[in-house]
């Protein structure tokens, strides 16, 4: 069981997923897509934590994953509330059109 798939495979997959999320955060303008890319990055970190936890037989990694999930849920609620009130104020969700702090 599982002797062919090494832990490194999961770690590399997690690195690739994190990189895809970074591409989204850096190149997209829509705040909601940036948000989804952030969730991708969080998932990548969770995947590497679970891989470490399973291959070392220590459940502490999975405990951290639960805390990250709780934080992600809180972040989703607050972030989408901010995006919603931003849309109500400026009628846009494109981050480069929101420059009220820039002068």
């Amino acid at each position: 069981m599982l002797e062919t798939i090494q832990m490194e495979y999961y770690l590399i997959l997690s690195a690739v997923l994190f990189t895809i999320g970074t591409i989204g955060v850096l190149t997209r303008r829509n705040a909601i897509i940036i948000f989804m890319s952030l969730e991708l990055m969080l998932n990548a970190v969770n995947l590497s934590l679970v891989a470490f936890s399973s291959y070392y037989g220590d459940s502490a990694g999975q405990i951290f994953v639960f805390f990250i999930m709780a934080l992600a849920a809180a972040e989703a609620a607050v972030g989408l509330a901010i995006i919603l009130s931003l849309f109500r104020l400026k009628k846009t969700v494109y981050v480069d059109e929101v420059n009220i702090f820039k002068w």
Binding site: I32, F35, M36, E39, N43, M69, A72, A73, A76, A77, L80, I83, L84, F87, V93
Partner: peptide, 19 residues
């Protein structure tokens, strides 16, 4: 439960309410 049942539904609501 958390990501698909919670966060994804929130995101889709966000999309529908802002576009």
């Amino acid at each position: 439960m958390v990501y698909i049942g919670g966060i994804l539904v929130l995101i889709i609501f966000g999309v529908l309410l802002t576009t």
